[in-house]
């Protein structure tokens, strides 16, 4: 076949492939683009309590700046994000190491370790709501049995963020562990053999070999959890609805209430687009970090 004929065949194949995949591409773009564009449009509108709509330009975004509840929500969102992510990464790596080294652990025990993240968040929220009830829950019963003072858990403005972070950590640490476990299993054994020959202690081996080699995997887990944590909603809504007071009122909860309880869809859209921008920012930052630690 001549070069010209080969190029023609190649071009034709590309055209056919493009034509065949076009419907799927159009559908996917439409499914993603339409809601985003519609939300952007809504962010420029004002809806009265009765649903009457008017164009207000950037007024919704200007309102954000002076809205105390927005800044409080942002603080709560970031506090929950940082606390939960730190706990999940540390405990996730630890759990992965346990599962990696405990080769004889029965399958059922391994399944139990990773079962929390298979539970729907609403169910997890309901379960913890009952356990942490200050009067009827098991948590305070256990504390008091050990001679410790009871806690108000989710009902305390001081403790609600750490408590919600603990619930999320309980649910999602196994997910992080599973990702890290995959990373551990792909590490080259030769490096460990060399370290063993050189007489490195287990701690030094972890510090100098395992952790640096695992960093790209850990950052990947951090990216996945970041997206979820910044738009954390279900467990908070089930357990506290943003309370007590506004102590756990994240941006997501605040936006939901503004939109669907107070029917101000325009301002809620502005809030949610701002949150989306924050999520994108966090993901971009993590991606850069991932590039920096790649090996």
């Amino acid at each position: 076949m001549s070069d010209a004929a080969a190029t023609l065949t190649h071009d034709r194949q590309r055209l056919e492939l493009s034509a065949l995949s076009a419907p799927a591409v159009v559908f996917t773009v439409a499914m993603i683009a339409f809601p985003v564009i519609y939300t952007v449009w809504l962010g420029f509108q004002s809806f009265s309590s009765t649903g009457k709509q008017s164009y207000v330009g950037l007024a919704n975004y200007a309102r954000l700046v002076s809205d105390h509840e927005f800044w409080h929500g942002l603080w709560v969102t970031i506090a929950l994000y940082v606390l939960s992510l730190a706990l999940q990464l540390v405990l996730g790596v630890w759990l992965a190491l346990v599962l990696f080294h405990a080769k004889r652990l029965p399958g059922i025990v391994r399944s139990l370790f990773i079962s929390p993240f298979m539970m729907p968040p609403v169910v997890a929220g309901m379960m913890w709501l009952v356990i942490l009830d200050p009067s009827l829950g098991a948590a305070n019963y256990i504390l008091q049995s050990l001679g410790l003072p009871p806690s108000e858990w989710l009902a305390s403005p001081t403790w609600v963020i750490p408590t919600v972070a603990l619930i999320d950590t309980w649910q999602w640490t196994p997910y992080v562990a599973l990702i890290v476990l995959g990373g551990l299993q792909s590490l080259p054994p030769s490096v460990y053999e060399a370290a063993q020959i050189d007489g490195a202690s287990p701690f030094k081996t972890f510090q100098r070999i395992t952790l640096p080699l695992l960093l790209p995997t850990i950052v990947t887990a951090a990216i996945l959890r970041s997206v979820d944590l910044l738009r954390f909603f279900d467990i908070i809504y089930i357990t506290t609805q943003g309370g007590p007071g506004n102590a756990s009122n994240t941006l997501n909860i605040y936006g939901f209430r503004v939109g669907f309880e107070f029917f101000n869809i325009g301002y809620a859209s502005a809030l949610m687009l701002t949150l989306t921008a924050i999520v994108f920012g966090a993901v971009l930052a993590c991606n850069r970090l991932r590039g920096a630690v790649a090996w």
């Binding site: 009830d133 200050p134 009067s135 108000e152 989710l154 009902a155 305390s156 357990t239 007071g245």
Partner: peptide, 12 residues
């Protein structure tokens, strides 16, 4: 009231 009453609605 009970401890944690700020989270109490009809269920609790």
């Amino acid at each position: 009231g009970p401890p944690g009453v700020v989270n109490y609605s009809f269920q609790q």
